[in-house]
């Protein structure tokens, strides 16, 4: 994409310095979505921005952080599946669809040492599903458009 700016510094900064930092920050935004500003949509956009940054800086020919197209589609499907799981799990446990009250959290609270309510647990499940869907779809759209305009 940018053969005229083929610089080692640009590649190093984008791939080694910026992208891991942005991805870690995106995961922080995802996992602290209930405590501070954040959530699945925002974290998905941030992580997708990191992946697109690497694609923009390195061009399309180099294979860094490249995700196969089939895997991206599977990730989007898995995200939707996690969301539906978060909805159907309370249904199995005897409540309404997407009503998180009966989700068991004692094992998680003992494991992580937190005081998380069942509703906060259900919100976390759903945010993870949204996160996977947003990341996969944004990267998929970019890859398809960039890949098809290159030909």
């Amino acid at each position: 994409m940018n053969d005229r700016y083929d610089s080692v510094i640009l590649h190093f900064i984008a791939r080694v310095v910026m992208a891991p930092l942005i991805i870690v920050f995106g995961l922080y935004v995802l996992l602290h979505g209930e405590l501070s500003p954040g959530g699945g949509f925002q974290a998905g956009a941030i992580v997708a921005a990191a992946l697109l940054l690497v694609r923009l800086a390195l061009g399309n020919r180099q294979a860094a952080l490249r995700i196969p197209q089939g895997l991206l589609i599977w990730l989007a499907c898995i995200g939707l599946g996690i969301y539906m799981f978060g909805g159907i799990l309370p249904l199995i446990l005897g409540a309404n669809f997407l009503d998180y009250a009966p989700i068991p959290v004692e094992w998680y609270n003992q494991f992580a040492g937190e005081h998380r309510t069942p509703r906060a647990m259900g919100i976390l499940i759903i945010e993870v599903g949204v996160f996977l869907g947003v990341v996969a779809v944004l990267v998929l759209i970019y890859d398809l458009i960039a890949g098809s305009s290159r030909q």
Binding site: V137, L138, I141, L144, I145
Partner: peptide, 9 residues
């Protein structure tokens, strides 16, 4: 974002 992506495609 989704609308823009579909429009660009």
């Amino acid at each position: 974002v989704a609308i823009t992506g579909v429009a660009l495609s």
